[in-house]
Write a protein that binds this DNA or RNA. Structure first.
Length: 639
RNA sequence: GCCCUUGUAGCUCAGCUGGUAGAGCAAUUGAUUUGUAAUCAAUAGGUCCGCGGUUCGAAUCCGUGCGGGGGCACCA
């Protein structure tokens, strides 16, 4: 005689044991229709799960995240069913729900094609139309293993073998012919899935995520509660594609890549202007924060990298170079050893600490070819790097100062939403564990003091110390990892850095590594996508284009442009033999923030007519007022 | 690095089952002197990614290398 308590506190008494579906029917017809899944005392269960005892329940529909998740999970199952029906001999492995959808990994010799996806979708649709019933069974471990082995599903058997002994093994049947080992829960029948799904792509994926294992074929799909949500999602993807920095970079003539140097950027005039603006800005910020800028060699003797530990721990990613007399040098993958060498030059006192040295250092890392991705993952990049040499007592405070600076700079560049990722010691590392203990404690303390949201990534620190990474969220809700702050008790000692302490003794300083943009290249990629190429005025690579109405006004336009440049604003005069409409279209596509039109009216009144990007309003302004107004707007704080 | 996919003019792309290439935009030349998103006309432009093979004949088929894209792995 269970008493069922609903989320609103109301009770329903039942004479006999009861299922979620029966409870839903008792509450209302429409709920019974919409119900997908139930939670019983906080645990998600199938709707036909039998409740015998008094319970607190909640029924979920497609409007709830829990409901949507089950829809996606069932869609993955139905996809696997369709695949095995269409392509006998294909083995199933795992098929989890992911953000916006699901995937399923299959083992099959022949590759799946785009055409296959359409066929599979069609078959899925048929299975959904048939509304096949779901049934749950509990199997004995031995039975399950031998059964899956017998039918040639060696991956399933392997999965079961790795499930702990005390766990219940549930098998879900969808209809009479297909079943899969699964924790569940699932919908009562395939018809509940609806038709708001789409198979999106096929790719390779290693069995159990390990690159030493064989490669399986993964089919990705997206799934939603209704067609409206599905279409909204597809629309979002389309919008994101329009912002693709590789596409915009080409259209806006910012940079290009070419075969001769995969993963290295050929910066064009405008892209380089943007690059330099970011450096100028950062230089100003760092100067105010007490950093001293240095510069160190790009090519350094192998012996230094052996001493620092890079040769051993990072060698696989390093470019090397052999001189005609057969000496081995490495092209720097990091700036830290060079910077420590600068610190080492001359005697340092505790009174000098903290010493903050910044360097816009270009580093080269031989990344796997498959990792390369436009500006976001390159083989040669410029870090806005800095190294802070300090005492142990100063760590937490200095970390906080760095964090404040980072947040201030992200805000200036349009990113207000920042979270932290804290990573501790990796397997491949240098230094004793008690040193790591100290470094981790100090950094975690700083993380907590920022009061920002943070996550902990076990074992993902740098080989010389723990780190935090700064993740920022862009205009369309995507997360990007940019800045980093690392505490290092190892490298300074390895490279012989020291200062004279109060007691006259030599001590090894602690080193904080930090980069705010991380990589200038990558950060520019993120900026392009965040702003969809429409940069704020101050950072725009070409801020103004002056357009004379006809060649009669060329001279005036040239003069105007010159005066604009005198104010430190970039400007180009378009004297080409094209009409005004043509030029407006051309420069609007190039996403120039301000077009300045000059004709008789402007010459007579010493003014310009402004057309702002994405506006067709005409705004006439006295030239001197224009210069005054926009030179005031030409800085980060006016963002 | 691994799986799949892809590589034609400066750019975006067309070229069915093999018969040595086309369009639009851009460029050049000429005409038009223009007031807010493409003025008109003419001309020129190609090692069809490289190498090898099949074939009387390859942009097209096969092999291989390199590059791009989507994932996986990697991201110190």
């Amino acid at each position: 005689m269970p008493t069922i308590t609903l989320p609103d506190g109301n009770n329903i008494k039942f004479q006999n044991e009861v299922t979620g579906l029966e409870i839903a029917e008792k509450i209302s017809k429409s709920l019974a229709k919409q119900a997908l899944i139930i939670s019983v005392n906080g645990e998600l269960k199938d709707l036909y799960h039998i409740i015998k005892k008094d319970s607190l329940i909640k029924i979920f529909t497609a409007k709830d995240p829990e409901g949507l998740e089950v829809i996606r999970h069932d869609t993955a199952h139905i996809m696997a069913m369709a695949v095995q029906e269409l392509y006998p001999g294909t083995q199933v492995t795992i098929g989890p729900v992911i953000e916006n959808g699901f995937y399923y990994d299959f083992a099959r010799k022949e590759p799946f094609t785009e055409d296959d996806l359409k066929k599979i979708e069609k078959r899925m649709s048929e299975i959904i139309d048939k509304d096949v019933k779901t049934r749950r069974e509990v199997w004995k471990r031995e039975k399950a293993i031998s059964h899956f082995k017998k039918i040639g599903e060696k991956y399933k058997a392997e999965i079961i073998e790795s499930i702990p002994n005390n766990e219940e093994l549930s098998i879900y049947h969808h209809g009479d012919t297909w079943y899969d080992l699964c924790r569940g829960p699932h919908l009562v029948s395939s018809g509940k899935i609806g038709k708001a799904f789409k198979l999106t792509k096929v790719s390779g994926a290693y069995w159990r995520g390990n690159s030493k294992n064989e490669m399986l074929q993964r089919i990705y799909g997206t799934g939603w509660a209704n067609l409206k949500d599905l279409n909204a999602y597809l629309k979002r993807i389309e919008e994101a594609e329009k912002r693709d920095h590789r596409k915009l970079g080409k259209e806006m003539d910012l940079f290009h890549f070419r075969e001769e140097s995969p993963g290295s950027v050929f910066w064009h005039e405008k892209g380089w202007a943007l690059f330099q603006k970011l450096i100028d800005y950062m230089r100003m910020k760092q100067d105010n924060a007490g950093y001293k800028e240095i510069n160190t060699p790009e090519v350094l003797d192998r012996a230094l990298w052996e001493k620092s530990g890079h040769w051993e721990k990072f060698g696989a990613n390093m470019y090397t170079s052999i001189t005609p007399d057969e000496k081995v040098f490495a092209i720097k993958p990091m700036n830290c050893p060079g910077c420590i060498e600068v610190f080492n030059q001359g005697l340092k006192s505790y009174k000098d600490l903290p010493i903050k040295m910044s360097e816009f250092g270009k580093v080269h890392r031989y990344e796997p070819s498959g990792a390369l991705h436009g500006l976001l993952r390159v083989r040669a990049f410029t870090q806005d790097d800095a190294h802070i040499f300090c005492t142990e007592d100063q760590i937490t405070k200095e970390c906080l100062i760095v964090t404040d600076l980072i947040l201030e700079i992200y805000k200036d560049l349009g990113f207000e939403n920042v979270i932290l990722k804290y990573s501790d010691r990796p397997d491949l590392r240098v230094g004793d564990d008690n040193v790591w203990d100290k470094a981790e404690t100090a950094l975690l303390e700083a993380v907590k003091a920022t009061k920002l949201e943070y996550s902990i990534n076990k074992g993902e620190g740098a080989f010389y110390g723990p780190k935090i990474e700064f993740v920022l969220r862009d205009a369309i809700g995507r997360d990007w990892q940019c800045g980093t702050l690392q505490v290092d008790f190892n490298l300074p000692g390895r490279l012989g850095a020291s200062y004279i302490d109060k007691d006259g003794q030599k001590k090894v300083p602690v080193l904080l590594h930090r980069a705010l943009f991380g990589s200038l290249e990558r950060f520019i990629g993120i900026l392009i996508e965040n702003y969809a190429g429409k940069f704020p005025f101050w950072i725009s690579p070409l801020q103004t284009v002056v357009i004379p109405i006809s060649d009669e006004f060329d001279n005036y336009a040239i003069q105007v442009s010159k005066k604009i440049k005198d104010e430190g604003i970039s400007s180009f005069v378009d004297l080409k033999k094209h009409n005004l409409n043509y030029k407006i279209r051309d420069h609007s596509h190039a996403k120039i923030p301000l077009l300045l039109i000059c004709g008789k009216k402007e010459v007579d009144s010493n003014s310009v007519t402004i057309r702002r990007l994405d506006s067709n309003k005409q705004e006439n302004m006295d030239l001197n007022l224009f210069l005054k107004t926009f030179s005031a707007l030409n800085k980060a704080s006016s963002n």
